[in-house]
Structures are given as C-alpha cells and as structure tokens.
Design a binder for these strands. Structure first.
Lengths: 204, 204
DNA sequence: CCGGGAAGTCAACAGCCGTTGGCAAACCAG
DNA sequence: CTGGTTTGCCAACGGCTGTTGACTTCCCGG
C-alpha cells in the first residue's frame, strides 16, 4: 500500500533474500533521507517542510511524494533508530551504568537522527509513539539482563530513560549552556552511578 | 467572575504604581491566555493556531492580535513560569533532594504551563531560550544555596535539570507507560537521592 | 443625552503548506 | 531502433496560516 513498487527480481530465488535490487533512483532516495533527517533534527516535524527538504536534496517536492507516499511516510523512513545497545550480560555488574551512559553519549554525539526523533516526539503523536517503541523494544531487554527483580524491570528502565533522555534534552535540544559545556567523561562520571543505581540497586 | 474590580487611580503620580488600571476586556484577555496555554501544552507552537485558540476562547482571532500583537507575543504572555522554588537555606542538608523533587512534581502535576513550555522549547528557538532563562534565574540561585563549591554551581544545576526535565519529558510529554504509572512518592524515593548527590556530593 | 473610545465582528489579503496529475526526458530490454 | 518503464520537472489545486483594516456595537464619562 505505501510500499515502493519493487521491480521483479531478475535472479529467481524463491522468496529470495530481502536485498532489494538497486534502483537507478537510489541516490535521490538517499539524498532525500539525508536532507529529511537534518531538517527534522533542527526544525521539528511541522517546520521541516517537504519543500525545504526537497530543495536541500536538489530535487522536486513531488519526488518525495512519489518515493515516500506522504510526509508521515517520509518521517518513518528517515527516522529509523537502532541504539545498538551493548550486551550487558557478561559485564562486571558495577560497570553497567558507565558503559550504558558512554554508549548513549557516543550515539547522540554523531547521529542527528536521535535529535530529530526527540524533537519530533515532543510535539508529534507519531514521534512519541516511535520513542515508546524504542523504549519497549530496545531499552527494556537490556534492563532485563541486569535487573534483579523481574517485576521491576519496566520501572527501572523508565528511570534510566528519564535520566538519559533528560541529558539529551538539556544538552542537544534546549542547549542549556552548562549542559553543553560538560565533557563526555564528566557526564559518564556523574550519570554512570545514577543509571547504575536505577538498574541494579535495591529499592530505595 | 474575576476579582473585584479596583477603581482606576484618579491622580496619576509621576512614574505611578505599576498596578495597571483594570480594563473592561480583562475577562477576554484571560480567556485567551487560558486557551492559549492549553493549546500550546497539547499541540506545541506550530499546531496551536491562533484561530483554534480564539475559537476556544469564544472570540474572534483578530482580538488576539489586538491584545498580544502577534503569535510570539501571545506565547510570551501565556507562558510565564514561576517555579516558586522553596528556600533550601534552613533545611536539613540531606533533605534537599527529596524536597526539590517533590516540589517539581507538584508543580508539573497541576500546571499545564510547564508542559506547554517543554513542548514548545523542544521545537521553537524562543521557547528554548525561555527555558534557559528559567534555568539561569530560578534554578541556579537555588543550587547556589546548597552547593559546596561555588565554581561547580552551574554544573550541579545542569545535572539536576537533566534529571528533573527528563522525568517531565518521559512522564508528561512522551508518556512512556511505566513513567506515567509511577506513583509520586516512588519518584521522590528514586530521584531524591540522585538530585541530592548532584547538588551536594563531592566530585565523583 | 451625547459623543468618543473601547470591544468585538467580518471579510479579505498574501503566503505557505501537502499533495496531485500531466508531460518531457532518460534509460534499458527486446 | 523501438516501446515501455522509470525518473524528473512543472504548474496547479484546495486548504490553512498569521495578519490587517474597515465596520458595527456597546459602554461610560461628561
């Protein structure tokens, strides 16, 4: 329905590998996604207009519609987040906080998709649901690895999310000066024990 | 409906008292602000249209322009935040964290202005600057009261803001289910020690 | 009672938005 | 070469936006 029309695969593999055959327009498609990510990250959903994104990608706005259906489809295609959270299983239990904070920090520092998602999630229902999905599918499983009481996994994960997203909000979105000036290792030193406690400490 | 009208001061002293003389349109002005706060809180800046706000207030959109100049002026007038942070000076030093978290929670629970400001701050430059101002003028002074090393006050305050705003983000804006389900006293018990540490603990 | 100003309504403007359909060029299989 | 598909541009649509100015209605001081 919203899927892009795929030409018939030349090599006959029965339900072959999902590797789509390269299209001549792949460069354009990618340019659109790159421009969209940047606009969503800096402007949020409403002010990131299809016209502006198309101009950044040096194509006509109607191409965006043809390849991604509508603005929602474009957002869905542009903002696909994989946090690549590390496996905390075989890890010294007193290090999980620092490891997690450092990983988040690395991800945020060089991926504008995360800023785009946070900005959009704050004003757009679809964006908020996307963030809920990431929490459920990516952060919860990690909490499950290190949390002592299975019943408290959602609470522990939510507390962790509140601290990590709060850092991202103050540092990358609101740009509160002292939060921007912090060195990454300072952040790890301060937030590591917090996350550590939220995930592994007994009830307060 | 609104307070007892005070008669206009007959004699206008030079640089008279800043008490503005009540206008016949005060009820309308207030209705506009109430509607604006609600729309900004639920929709964010762009999708909170002047037409929708005017319809909520049962008046014509042009009245909004007459009374507040333009949309930015309306936002500035509607979203005026006073956190009413308590005086932490004469307080048992190990209670500041819990007191601060509980106060923030009470403020957020019954004042949609804070949600409006957070939603707008995430996508709107003026909104972000407003939040920076609140941080600087309201949270920093409180941190100054309890922070041991004066040089670290901005850092400590920023860490505190990251945790408190992160809670507001996950609970009131993104509505991540386990964060919504938390009981206020649970939040105080978990976040209190964190804020306590950020403000008063020695360097990690 | 009256006149002036405030309060409020109405219609319209220019501009931008997402989206659509038609048409020209480029490409590639036969 | 030829015909069909893909890629792309162009112009336009209806709708919504912030904003403006002219007009009527009401209130109240003199």
């Amino acid at each position: 329905m919203t899927g892009t029309p795929t030409p018939p695969s030349p090599t006959s593999g029965p339900t072959a590998s999902p590797r789509p055959r390269p299209r001549r327009s792949d460069a354009t498609r990618d340019a659109i996604l790159v421009a969209a990510r940047e606009r969503f990250a800096t402007d949020g959903y409403e002010r990131a207009t299809i016209r502006a994104i198309a101009k950044d990608a040096n194509i006509d706005p109607s191409m965006v519609m043809r390849y991604y259906g509508n603005k929602e489809g474009l957002f869905a295609a542009a903002v696909a987040v994989d946090l690549r959270l590390p496996d905390l299983g075989g890890l010294s239990p007193q290090d999980v906080g620092a490891v997690l904070v450092r990983h988040f920090l690395d991800m945020w520092e060089d991926d504008e998709v995360l800023t785009a998602l946070l900005r959009v999630g704050a004003t757009n229902q679809a964006g908020a649901e996307r963030m809920q999905g990431i929490f459920r599918d990516q952060l919860l499983p990690v909490a499950r690895q290190v949390c002592p009481d299975p019943e408290q996994i959602p609470v522990r994960a939510a507390l962790t999310a509140s601290q990590l997203l709060g850092l991202a909000l103050t540092r990358y979105v609101l740009r509160i000066p002292p939060a921007v000036a912090l060195h990454p290792e300072e952040i790890v030193a301060w937030l590591g024990p917090t996350v550590q406690r939220y995930l592994t400490a007994p009830n307060p």
